[in-house]
Simulated scan of single mutants.
Amino acid sequence: MRGRDIALAIGGAATAIWIEGARPAQAHAILSESTPREAQIVSGPDLAVGLRFNCRIDARRSRLLLISPDMHGTVLPLLDADAADELRATLTALRHGAYRLHWQVLSVDGHITRGDVSFRVGR
Rank of each mutant, 00 (worst) to 15 (best):
L65T: 15
R2T: 09
D116C: 04
S118G: 14
R23H: 12
D85I: 03
E38T: 01
R60E: 12
A39N: 15
L87H: 03
V49Y: 03
D46W: 08
D80T: 11
D109E: 09
L106P: 02
I6P: 07
W18A: 11
I10S: 10
H28F: 12
I41A: 10
G97V: 13
R120Y: 09
F53T: 08
I112T: 14
V105G: 06
H102V: 09
L76A: 08
A83R: 14
L91Q: 06
V121D: 04
H102M: 04
H102A: 12
S107M: 02
S43H: 14
R63G: 10
L94W: 07
A7K: 03
T74I: 10
D109Q: 12
G3L: 05
R2H: 08
L101H: 03
A84Q: 13
I67G: 09
H72P: 02
D70N: 11
H72E: 13
G97N: 14
R56Q: 07
A39P: 05
D46K: 08
G12S: 00
V49G: 08
A16R: 00
P36S: 03
L78W: 05
R95L: 05
A84E: 11
D82S: 03
V105C: 05
R114F: 07
A25Y: 11
H96R: 13
I67K: 14
L51F: 02
D109N: 15
